[in-house]
Nucleic acid binder design. Structure first.
Lengths: 358, 358
DNA sequence: TTGAAAGCGCTAACAC
DNA sequence: GTGTTAGCGCTTTCAA
């Protein structure tokens, strides 16, 4: 089978310690010895056995990422970013799907399979604030999302309230006054839906516009079908609105479809804004104005934060790290003239409107 | 730190072998002994150290999945299916992204990081037939996709030619005669684009319709923008067509957008069919008729085949395993009456039209 | 600058 | 039925 340190040492005529030193770039090795060892390594095609190294060192060089489902575009793109960031740091990513099931999420936290990794980036969708204690695990962990706050671990997330408020203000600045919402969750206090709805309400309040629950569509899930169903229900009820704020892009795309079927022109009759900055929002018809909540920054920061904890470089209190956001103005809700000055660097064809320091 | 077998053995007053026996469900243990050990395990919160077990047993309980990019919907959905299938089998999945770069793909095959896994499910997009030899690795591997055939490993893939031919025949049966293609690759012989184009040509030939390269759009990538660009170019050239076959769903969705911008009604003036059976094809406007190439079966089969090789249950020649496909008829190209009898079980709202035994 | 040897936590012969 | 023991391949004191 595969060659071991002993094989290399024997061939090079040195001890395994010397070979180990060469592999680990220990500085004080005589160049001739080093050359001889490297020659032997090449000759045998030796690669270190990472399992053995892990057992000895206590580090695996792998991290785990737990998301609800890679079939959900947001989490697929998040995972892509996390894996890319991890690779740049030389670690590998083990991906788990929890199906947004709180029981499976809790179970995952205690799973022995995590022993194969040095730490976990955890994006729960089923667990809630009442499960905060379950996050007190004995391995490094970084929490994502907005299901649980003030937990015992580092937490990297987005500015939901501010970003949703900015999206709403964007519509208000466009002259819209009856802004429907798609994707609210009844009774939720924290969680993406509640926080984004709060931002929406803050913007309305600041503009002196009363909140009207009649134009708020409630859904349980955030799939495209839910956005479509919710919009159908709004139309069926005959309520009036001149804009729609989809609490995520998928909902907004579903709602947009139904609006078009119903013959409402976008953005003339109804402007539509989503949330998530999904790649596909750029290619819908019409292209979807959306809030990029800083997904890529979140991924990179989650990885670097986790690796710092693993390395023991940071040992203080759990930190809350918040990403910048920006509004990507597209066809479904063009940038109002009033916000023209707020332009900033953005993807070609996009117009960045707002951003906060993290 | 974490408790070990020794700790448990000491607490239970037995040897570590007995503890090991209990953990591994060795049958011949006295019930009282077993109970005592289990009590000690619970008391200490013992979980086995999988790294140590791996070193000893030579198995890690993890497999690797290498795909181009999780940002591509097809691969995200494939990964979701693979992870689900692996979890059902009790193994965990380490996901690598190669960016479809042939150099990175070749490098990955020799990466020591794979030592952390028992085998690899590899979906190359950059490597080609000329790299077949590079697939001769010394660990179990299952190949996906259609970049390389007759390689030294098991290969699980779809019936590209037959499925594309069926999609084209579906359009022909609808009375379409000028079927444009979006996403062809110039000079390619194998690979998804070439095989699907071949199926298209076979269908035309069987129907006695001459192939016309003027209505075949060539692209390098298969993103939505490429489908849009390709369609724009077709429209600009003023060529006539009454249907479009997108060589994947993403291309078809991009093309559909441009058709709508140009005022061509779908499916009346132009029928559109995609390929991949992506979830999002069901929610576009109009919903997209597409070929489900059996992605879920491919994922499950890849996992089970790999695990069989790992277990050494199978040792024969490399196998080629082909998935069934079916056409999901939707709004962009309704099922022609001539194919009405071919209906079969399918997702609600879908109409399955064709399928082959694997 | 290099070597010898212990041991990470577990499994699996082999003994009793 | 249960205990002893020898490693899996590596890192890491400690000596030389």
């Amino acid at each position: 089978m595969s060659a071991t340190l002993h094989d290399v040492a024997r061939l090079a005529g040195v001890s395994i310690k010397t070979v180990s030193n060469v592999i680990n770039d220990y500085p004080h090795i005589r160049p001739t010895t080093k050359a001889r060892v490297e020659q032997a390594i090449a000759e045998l095609g030796y690669t270190p056995n990472l399992t053995a190294r892990s057992l000895r060192s206590g580090r695996t060089g792998a991290i785990a990422l737990a998301v609800p489902d890679l079939g959900l575009a947001y989490f697929a793109e998040l995972a892509a970013s996390v894996i890319a960031a991890a690779e740049a740091a030389g670690v590998v990513v083990l991906v788990e799907q929890t199906g947004a099931d709180p029981a499976r999420e809790r179970e995952l936290l205690r799973s022995p399979r995590l022993k194969l990794t040095d730490g976990l980036i955890f994006s729960p969708l089923g667990m809630g604030q009442e499960d905060a204690d379950a996050l007190a695990v004995d391995y490094p962990m970084v929490l994502l999302g907005e299901r649980i706050f003030d937990g015992p671990t580092d937490h990297v997330t987005m500015r939901n309230v501010e970003a949703a408020r900015a999206a709403t203000e964007f519509l208000l600045a466009s002259g819209r006054r009856r802004i429907a919402v798609v994707g609210a969750h009844a009774g939720e206090v924290i969680g993406s839906a509640a926080l984004r709805l709060q931002g929406y309400r803050e913007a309305l309040a600041a503009a002196g516009i009363p909140y009207d629950d009649d134009i708020v569509g409630y859904t349980t899930l955030w799939h495209r079908a839910n956005g479509a169903d919710s919009m159908r229900e709004l139309l069926a009820r005959g309520v009036e609105f001149d804009a729609v704020f989809g609490l995520n892009d998928t909902l907004a795309l579903g709602a947009m479809r139904v609006l078009q079927e119903a013959g409402r022109s976008i953005p003339d009759e109804v402007a539509v804004v989503g949330f998530d900055g999904l790649d596909e929002a750029e290619y819908s018809i019409p292209s979807l104005t959306t809030v990029d909540p800083g997904r890529d920054w979140i991924a990179r920061t989650a990885v670097s934060t986790l690796l710092e904890r693993i390395a023991g470089k940071v040992t203080g209190e759990p930190r809350l790290l918040l990403a910048d956001f920006r509004i990507l103005a597209r066809e479904s809700a063009p940038r109002p003239a009033a916000l023209a000055g707020a332009d900033a660097a953005a993807a070609p064809g996009d117009t960045a409107v707002a951003g906060l320091r993290s």
